[in-house]
């Protein structure tokens, strides 16, 4: 595989990583820790059946974990597409 193409592929991968890790950081450390206290003033809507949750607490004990799962599958999807586009996928 030629150098320039590979470089391009790698740069795109790095762009994905920066974007997804920024979300990773903001949701867990931002919403779950640093901003937890102000966010705790907000509640889940009544109809959700979880009206007892304060938002900061929910992000720290539930929301961040769901976000982590979604982030990984988004990355898997993006990379599978990128691998095909640059023809570096296996088989």
């Amino acid at each position: 595989m030629e150098k320039g193409k590979l470089q391009e592929y790698w740069q795109t991968n790095l762009k994905y990583l920066v974007g997804l890790l920024a979300i990773w950081f903001v949701v867990s450390y931002g919403l779950g820790i640093f901003l937890a206290e102000p966010l705790n003033a907000i509640r889940f809507p009544e109809w959700s059946g979880g009206g007892g949750f304060q938002l900061g607490f929910w992000f720290a004990q539930q929301g961040s974990i769901y976000t982590f799962v979604v982030l990984i599958f988004v990355y898997v999807g993006l990379m599978n597409r990128l691998d095909k586009k640059y023809d570096v996928h296996e088989d």
């Binding site: 779950g32 720290a60 004990q61 982590f68 982030l71 990984i72 990355y75």
Partner: peptide
């Protein structure tokens, strides 16, 4: 929450 986030968030780093 330190355990809940700390012991799951590492998988994002692993996968990425």
């Amino acid at each position: 929450s330190i355990y809940l986030m700390g012991w799951t968030g590492g998988y994002v780093l692993l996968a990425l």
